[in-house]
Design a protein around this nucleic acid. Structure first.
Lengths: 216, 216
DNA sequence: ATCCGCGCAATGTGATCACAAATCGCGATG
DNA sequence: CATCGCGATTTGTGATCACATTGCGCGGAT
């Protein structure tokens, strides 16, 4: 409460802490679609007043991660099938481009890192850990796309992930467990071979595989 | 100041008025790149307190329309050439897809409307009206893309426009006047012919033509 | 004349308050 | 027992205030 309780430590602003906290939870699918949030509740949880809570929520609404009724009530959005198809198409468009731009810059250390992450994915799949699966899956993609050196594109991709977050959790709950990393292996193989068309196809497949089933 | 000064008229919230006001100005390039803004200044101009001004600014920062220094100072961003290239690539990716989705839904009334807007563009070009040019150009694209029935994609495209706004003005200032609507005519021709590859090419050309010269 | 400090003005941040609207629950009524 | 209505509570909004920090300008020293 008291501003002086925070010493000289490097502390990002309160609204930023709230924003990142909520964002992570949404992106990992830890908030169910349609779940309601209140400013005072958020403030209480993060131990801040309503002001930073409001700013964080407004930002998330602007990014499409939360929806706001006309009366100002805030909740995670429940996506229609058309909207999901659209967002999947956007993922496909942007992420194929990001992968393509990362390809010429991909060196062996990057591929090793991707394979390590893929191993983690196999573990969390075995443990039926849905949130862990989403987290490692995003890390796999982000690690690859960071190589593209295209921050604006990556930001767009992350915004789309964010919008799909609450729905994603519902998807991976009913997803067949074993098939998870197969497209990731194709992506890694294409990276090793320097095969751009193969990479584009593999990324497109990986991005659209689950979402198509979700929309049906 | 007093909330009671606003009668029963349907009035959108204060932060929304501020947001839309600033957004329009930025998108039309009426704010120079690097220009500084202050919350109290914005509040005074829109006759609101700092609170709605802050929320509007935060939202625009989240959308990339404004940038914020570590100390919280707000200004329109000055884009590097790499960033401009990236944003142009994003416009190309998203808008080509939008046009492609609009094509099967394009009927004669839409094409008439586009031709009318194109006529307006010819007028403002003759009058050396840079802001009017940007406005009609955006209206041309938005009119076409609305037909795609893909609100999430359109929102993404508008976000990119927003980020390019301040820089756009600088571009169209030094753009050769006569060449403006040529790609628009190609777009209309492709729509009439139902020629999808031609439409994709025309949109890509229209989107990238000016921005390439800006980045050089 | 130029450069370095110092102090004041300006700015962003977050807490709190007043208010209006919306929502929920409880009780009365059919 | 279901349904409608009304009131209390919850909730978002916007204004204001206190405070820390930043940035700038003025003045003096070299």
């Amino acid at each position: 409460m008291n501003p002086a309780t925070r010493p000289t430590e490097i502390v990002s602003s309160a609204h930023d802490r709230v924003y990142r906290g909520l964002r992570t939870r949404i992106m990992l699918g830890q908030i169910a679609p349609g779940e309601a949030l209140t400013l005072r509740g958020i403030g209480k949880e993060f131990e801040v007043s309503m002001t930073p809570a409001r700013e964080a929520v407004r930002r998330l609404v602007a990014e499409g991660a939360l929806s706001m009724s006309s009366s100002g009530r805030v909740q995670t959005p429940e996506l229609s099938n058309e909207r999901i198809e659209e967002l999947a198409a956007l993922r496909s468009l942007i992420e194929v481009e990001l992968a393509s731009r990362a390809l010429p810059r991909a060196h062996i250390a990057l591929i090793d890192r991707l394979q390590t992450i893929n191993g983690t994915i196999a573990e969390v799949v075995r443990d039926r850990d849905a949130v862990g699966y989403i987290r490692s899956n995003l890390e796999f993609h982000r690690t690859l796309y960071l190589r593209a050196q295209a921050p604006a594109m990556l930001a767009m991709a992350e915004t789309v992930w964010l919008q799909l977050g609450p729905t994603m959790r519902a998807l991976y709950g009913r997803l067949r467990r074993s098939e998870a990393p197969q497209f990731h292996r194709l992506i890694i193989a294409a990276l090793k071979a320097g095969d751009e068309p193969g990479l584009r196809l593999a990324v497109r497949s990986d991005v659209t595989q689950g979402l198509k089933m979700l929309a049906s």
